[in-house]
Structures are given as C-alpha cells and as structure tokens.
Amino acid sequence: MPVDPSAVGRALPPSPVYEVGREALREFAEATAAGAPVHPAHTDPEAARALGHPDVIAPPTFAVVVAQRAEAAFVADPASGVDFARVVHGEQRLTHHRPIVAGDRLVAVVHVDAVRAMAGNELVTLRSEIGTEAGERVCTATSMLVVRAPVATAGEAS
C-alpha cells in the first residue's frame, strides 16, 4: 500500500510530554562527542550557566530524539501506508528557536508536509514543531523519509 497522499497538510495530535533529564543529555552528548571531550555545557550546570543557560543544554541534534518519537505515531500507523521496513532517512533539518534545556517538558506536533513519488520511492516530509507544554517554541525538526521501492535503491539506511 502506498503512502496515503491525503495525509498531506494533516497535523497529528500533540505527542506525550518528553521530560528532558540531565543524564539523558549527558548520555547523548557522550555518545556523539566524536572522539573529543564532551562540551561541558552538556554535562556541567555551572559551565552551562557561565554561558547564560539556566541548566545543561542539549547538543544540536538531540531534538531529533524528541522528533522521532513523535514521528513514530505516523510512521508506525498502518493507516499512513508507510512500510517501516523500507524506510531510510533522506534528509534532516533543525531550526533551534532556543536551546533544549534540562528540565524542559517538551511536546511535539508532527505535520505531514509532503508525500511524493520519485523513481519508485516515496518521499515523506514530516515537520515536528517542538515546544514546551506551556507553548514556548523550542525547535522545528524537519525529516525527509525515503520509503524505498521493494528493489533496493540509493539512500541512507537509518
């Protein structure tokens, strides 16, 4: 079954709250430090405060952890027509309205921005508007997913 094109323009109900913990930020920062010391703003509240942040902050791509949990509600829904076994990550964009800070209680609203066919693959663009429970905008995360044709084609497996 192809991806349902009538989903374009739809917004999913808000995701459950993701509460950002200091240790989750530390683990993510350590897992993505890429062979260098972890930036102390991710692990040391004093170092983060010295930079003007209220507490430790997330690395730039941590927002995708929150976004992907919310996107799963669309990707894993049989009604959306996405065959999860054939999904690869095509593109990812992040716009940070402010850094994610430990203690944030984040909610994501996923918007289906585009569904299009290309060379037998289907390209699905999902935009997660991530904000606090109180409604403050935090990050816009846009993911382009490639649902590969049954014969393997180019794309990054994710």
Partner: peptide
C-alpha cells in the same frame, strides 16, 4: 551529530548553532 560536535567545539557554545541540516 558528529558534525555538530565538531561545530560546537569550535563555536564555544553549543547553543550558537541555530540551524543545521544535512542530506544523507
């Protein structure tokens, strides 16, 4: 994320990265 770590180490403050996008 490894690319982001390279950039934030240089920038001095991870919050300085206001936009970031890639194609895989």
């Amino acid at each position: 994320a490894a690319g982001a770590a390279l950039v934030t180490a240089w920038a001095g403050d991870p919050a300085a990265v206001v936009e970031y996008g890639v194609r895989f």
